[in-house]
């Protein structure tokens, strides 16, 4: 999901950075004192998740976990993802500092969207919540893939072609992330329901 340095045009980079700043500001405003440890843990999880290599598909892929971030954090996922991406760029050379804004939007926007889209489903007991958790994890990846394709339009690559490629390549990840999100959701619901308070707020 990380777009490399030197691929995108300055206009796209600036646009991405602007959106990321706005999102981060909203996220920070919504992050209350009690939420900080939770955000830190999830940011750390996101940071290492990108190292989990999934050896399927034509290119090497890794976990993203942005659906899970959205599910648990809502808007606060934006600063959490921004920090993790910043450190990934610095320490792993994933993405890069100039593309940080665009990459943040690519991964955080679907997280926030999925939070609001699946909140209703997740609040309900039983099967709907389970389905919602899976869909939240899978949809976030799908949307991220589409955003990658969108960002690459400006480089002269045809949207449909790239979108098809990205989405097809990420189908295994969508399924895996759906399952991971589902299990973590069920686990937290049983063991730490207070982690899920964002959904009910």
């Amino acid at each position: 999901m990380h777009i490399s340095e030197g691929v995108l045009s300055p206009a796209v980079l600036a646009g991405g950075a602007g959106l990321a700043v706005v999102g981060t500001a909203i996220g920070l405003k919504k992050m209350d004192y009690e939420a900080i440890p939770r955000v830190a843990i999830l940011s750390a999880a996101f940071f290492v998740a990108s190292l989990i290599h999934v050896p399927v598909g034509p290119v090497g892929l890794h976990l993203v976990l942005n659906g899970l971030m959205g599910l648990l954090l809502g808007w606060v996922a934006v600063p959490a993802i921004l920090i993790a991406l910043f450190l990934q760029a610095l320490l792993f050379q994933f993405g890069g500092l100039t593309v940080l804004g665009v990459n943040t939007v690519i991964m955080a926007a679907p997280a926030v969207f999925c939070f609001y889209a699946f909140r209703g489903l997740l609040r309900r007991p039983g099967t709907p919540a389970t389905v919602g958790a899976f869909a939240c994890g899978a949809t976030a990846i799908l949307l991220s893939g589409l955003l990658v394709a969108l960002a690459l339009i400006t480089t002269g690559q045809a949207f449909l072609q790239v979108a098809k490629l990205v989405v097809l390549a990420h189908i295994p990840i969508m399924i895996i992330e759906g399952i991971i999100t589902l299990f973590i959701f069920l686990f937290l619901k049983k063991v730490r329901p207070e982690m899920l308070e964002g959904i009910y707020a």
């Binding site: 290599h53 050379q93 994933f94």
Partner: peptide, 10 residues
């Protein structure tokens, strides 16, 4: 941590 040699995506 244990999957570090198996990095992807760069």
């Amino acid at each position: 941590i244990f999957s570090t040699p198996a990095l992807a995506h760069r």
